[in-house]
Write a protein that binds this DNA or RNA. Structure first.
Length: 207
DNA sequence: AGCACGATGCTCT
DNA sequence: GAGCATCGTGCTT
């Protein structure tokens, strides 16, 4: 498996301090990095969803600030990690100006570095093609809630990665918002890279 | 290849 | 006490 030796600098806070859908779009192709016991685990972000403000009835901030969602109301560039369904952690990146609750849910990565370690953590099951699986593969849990992704020495951060064009991307409704009223239930704020595009890039990586 | 369901524990109308 | 921004299994086409 490819082990890139050149690493990009961590994305700056200004990257996250933008309109949430723009951030979600720019995050496709970026590299999510987790430092686990001084080892790099990383992958290219290939699926993400935008959750935008108190008016968005699919967003955790819809009923205002609570202990759980407080991080979303804080400064951009921080991790909002929460627990759901009694067993899964979800990783979000806080966006927009401080005081405005918005975030991007990271739903899937294409694993690049530390693949063997991820496989071990995942017990050889599908690696990181879902928000809960991604967290398990990268050893992300509640201890990283509020983690500053832009601070030097961060254990979790995001680097510039590869570029995808609009033709490489599909938009659709966000997943799992079953009881959420329209238009929020179906608004196309889920972005993902087309599987065939992913396969192409994978082949390029093997020459 | 797709749907139904159970697991499991935290959060807060 | 109800409802989850899910996942894996096991069963049906």
């Amino acid at each position: 498996m490819t082990q890139p030796t050149r690493h990009s600098p961590s994305l700056p806070r200004a990257f996250f301090a933008r309109e949430t859908r723009q951030v979600a779009r720019s995050l496709l192709g970026a590299r999510l990095v987790r430092i686990d016991r001084s080892r790099r685990l990383s992958g290219i972000i290939v699926e993400a969803e935008a959750y935008i403000g108190e008016a968005d009835l699919g967003c955790h901030a819809r009923h205002g600030r609570t202990p759980r969602n407080a991080v979303m109301f804080g400064a951009p560039g921080h991790a909002y990690v929460y627990f759901t369904y009694g067993m899964h952690w979800m990783l979000n990146v806080v966006t927009e100006a401080e005081g405005r609750p918005a975030a991007v849910l990271l739903r899937a990565i294409w694993p690049v570095e530390g693949v063997a370690a991820m496989q071990r953590r995942r017990d050889r099951k599908p690696l990181a093609d879902g928000p809960g699986k991604l967290c398990q593969a990268l050893a992300v849990d509640g201890r990283l809630n509020g983690h500053d992704l832009c601070r030097p020495g961060a254990r979790l951060f995001i680097e510039k990665g590869m570029a995808f064009t609009e033709a490489d991307i599909v938009r659709g409704p966000r997943v799992g918002l079953n009881a959420v009223p329209e238009p929020w239930k179906s608004i196309p704020w889920r972005l993902r890279v087309l599987p065939e595009v992913l396969r192409e890039r994978l082949d390029e990586g093997h020459h």
